[in-house]
Design a protein around this nucleic acid. Structure first.
Lengths: 158, 158
DNA sequence: CTCCATTATGTTATGTTATAACGCATGTAG
DNA sequence: CTACATGCGTTATAACATAACATAATGGAG
C-alpha cells in the first residue's frame, strides 16, 4: 500500500490492471509493447511518483536492458505518445498514467518534497485556457496543467 | 509593431511602460534592478516570445555584460522571483511578464512554431486544480498552466 | 565616514536532461 | 525472399542548469 492521490490503495492490483489495460490498448492499436517498453511502464507504475529519465535508465541498466540514454528516452517517447505515461514538465520527470484508457487532458498535483503525484482528469473543451484559445484562434495541441506544492504528509513533516 | 497575444500593439510603448513599472516595484520592495537585470528584462521584453537562458546569455555576452551561464540564470532568477518574467516549462524558456503588477497565476498559450506566447490571467482560487487541491489537503505553491499549439499565423502558414 | 554585513558579480567546473546520427536486427506485408 | 518499417545498440554531443568559491559593490549602523 502506497499513496495514490495521497491516499492508500491496493497497489499490486493497480499495477496489474494497468498493465493489462496497456496490453489491450496495444493490441487494439497495433502498438508493440516490447520488453523494454513494458518494463519501463512497470517501473513507472511501481511508484506513484515522478521519475527522471536517468532514474528509469538506472533501473533498466541494472537489469541489463540497456545502458545509454536513448534507451530510456525511446521508451518514454513510446509510453507518452501512447498515453501510458505523462511528462511532468515542472520536474522534468515522468509518471505512469493513472487513468489509462480515458482520452486525456490530465492535471497534476505534485509534491515537490516527496515527488508523489496525483492525477486529475479535466475537460479539454472547458475552462479558461480553452476559452482564451477559442477567442484568439489559437489551436491547442497539448496542455500542461500542474500544481506544485506540498502534499498533506509533507506539510505535516514540515 | 509585433504581436502580443497574437495581435498588433504599440510595442515601444509597452516596453517602456513595463520597465517603468518594474522600476517602481523595485523601489517599493527594495529590490535592486541592476544593469544586468534591467538589460535582461529589456531583452525579454523586446520580443513577446520565449527565449532560452542561453539565447539571453548570447545577447548579454555580445554587450559585454557577462559570458558564463550563471550570469543569465541569476538575472532570470531575479526577474522570475520578482514576478517580472515567467518560465515556460514546456519550452525550458523564459518570457517577460505581460501583466506586471498583478498578483499572478499566469496561463500561457504558446506557439510551438514561432514561440510567441500569449499570457492570460487566471484566478488562483477557482478552477478544478484549486478544487482538487482543497479536497485532498494539498497546499499549492506554484501552478504551471500552458497550452502548446499553433497560433493563428502559423496555422495559416501550414 | 567607516566598518560591517549583505547582496551582486566573475569565473571555473560540473551536473542534469535530451537528442542526433548511424548501423544492425527483427518483424511484417507483399 | 525481399523490401520496408520499426525497434534497438552505441557513440557522441547538444541544451539546460547549478555548485562552489573568490571578488566587488552597496547600503545601513554606529
Amino acid at each position: 500500500m502506497t499513496p495514490i492521490g495521497f491516499e492508500a490503495h491496493d497497489h499490486a492490483d493497480c499495477v496489474r490492471t494497468t498493465l493489462e489495460q496497456a496490453e489491450k490498448v496495444c493490441k487494439a492499436r497495433r502498438l508493440r509493447l516490447t520488453p523494454i517498453r513494458r518494463r519501463a511502464l512497470e517501473i513507472l507504475l511501481a511508484e506513484h511518483r515522478a521519475l527522471g529519465a536517468y532514474d528509469l535508465l538506472a533501473v533498466l541498466a541494472a537489469e541489463g536492458l540497456g545502458t545509454a540514454p536513448p534507451v530510456a528516452y525511446r521508451a518514454l517517447d513510446f509510453l507518452t505518445s501512447a498515453g501510458f505515461a505523462h511528462k511532468i514538465e515542472g520536474l522534468n520527470a515522468y509518471i505512469a498514467c493513472a487513468h489509462l484508457g480515458a482520452d486525456h487532458t490530465p492535471a497534476f498535483l505534485i509534491c515537490t518534497a516527496c515527488k508523489s503525484v496525483a492525477e486529475a482528469e479535466t475537460q479539454t473543451t472547458k475552462g479558461r485556457l480553452a476559452e482564451a484559445a477559442r477567442d484568439s484562434g489559437f489551436h491547442i495541441e497539448r496542455t500542461v496543467i500542474e500544481a506544485l506544492g506540498l502534499c498533506p504528509a509533507c506539510q505535516d513533516a514540515a
